[in-house]
Amino acid sequence: MSLIIAYIGKKGCVMAADKRRIGYFGDKENLKLLEEELYSGSIGNDDEFLSKASELGISIKITDDASKLKVVGNSIRGEVSTKGTFETKRRRIYGTTNGYQIIELLGSEVKSRKAGESGVIIFGNNYAKQLAETLISRKWKASFSLRYMGDVFESILKEVSSKTPTVGDNCDVLMQQPKFTASDAQKHLNITIDNDIKVLTKFRQELTEQLVQQSIEIDLANKILDEGKIGRVVSVDGNMLQIQLNDKTQALKADGSWKQLAGPGQNVLMITEKDDVEIGDEVVIEDENLCLKKDKSSLKCDIILCSL
């Protein structure tokens, strides 16, 4: 759901990209039918697209605020991506003066990489690309300044967007004009791209760690006790009680770290306002209230009580 147009040559690099993303939810077979019509060009605008999706029982979310271009070093990076069940496929073009490279990634693993010195390169679905190529042949000239090329590319994006909902009418245009020979350009791109992929790899690792941590937190949150036996009093010192946890209960820190403070059979501190607590008294949670079983008197603690 993207259209990126890039010029790379002796003058520098200019890229233009729309900002549309489309999310789908629904039956796979109906989704396939919708995409076939969409990419064939038989659906001409957003209203027709939403109507056809509704007819097929497909939920659609359209946004026009996605940034597909980015300045990286002395180059511009354009990216189109497709999210699969387990991995995201990315196709990137990095362009600078006198050089470009096209990279295909699965996750953060490079699957293909090719380089060139100059040209007009288009990323997009076949229908949008055909429209863009026809318009470029009519409007573009090599004699144009880089800035004017950007204006032409922007006008082409807007015209294509009026004929297919796969492309939005909001767009970004970026330019870079460093002084590079063809050899310098490829050296710069090699370093820039390798570092950029390292950043992507680190981001994916951090995201994976966050997802694992979130999964752990959700699992633990589901184990928070709101009813049942907790343990028994093993020590009384004024209003401070040492409670030995039973064999099905653990205590976690209440600081957001979810780290275990005490396991089954270990002691935790609780506070009481009663003066008749005795060793051996049972501690329970009843109606989400932490208390002594014998008289339902409340207890206070700064821990999270969970089942194993």
Rank of each mutant, 00 (worst) to 15 (best):
C301G: 09
G265I: 02
K223L: 05
K83N: 13
K293E: 06
I5N: 03
G95W: 02
K111M: 14
C306F: 01
V283L: 14
L69Y: 02
G124Y: 00
I191M: 03
K248V: 01
I58N: 01
L269Q: 09
K139S: 11
D65I: 07
Q214N: 10
T63F: 09
I304P: 00
L252S: 00
R138A: 09
Q214L: 03
S54H: 05
V14R: 02
S162G: 03
R21M: 13
E282T: 12
F25M: 08
K274I: 05
L135T: 13
G124N: 00
T97H: 05
S162E: 11
L34Q: 01
N74G: 09
K294L: 13
S118G: 08
K114H: 15
V167P: 12
M175Y: 14
L261R: 09
T85D: 15
L308H: 06
D184I: 06
V234A: 14
S297Y: 12
D46C: 02
R113H: 05
E35P: 10
L220Q: 13
K259W: 04
D295T: 08
E117M: 03
S51K: 09
I304E: 01
R113Q: 04
T97E: 07
K28R: 10
C171G: 15
K61I: 12
E286R: 15
N45A: 03
L207C: 08
L261Y: 14
I191N: 12
S235M: 07
G84A: 02
K111S: 10
D287G: 08
K274L: 08
E288W: 06
L106W: 04
D255T: 04
G26F: 13
V80F: 11
D281P: 00
E288F: 13
S42H: 12
E36C: 03
K300I: 12
E278Y: 06
S42Q: 10
L56H: 01
E37H: 11
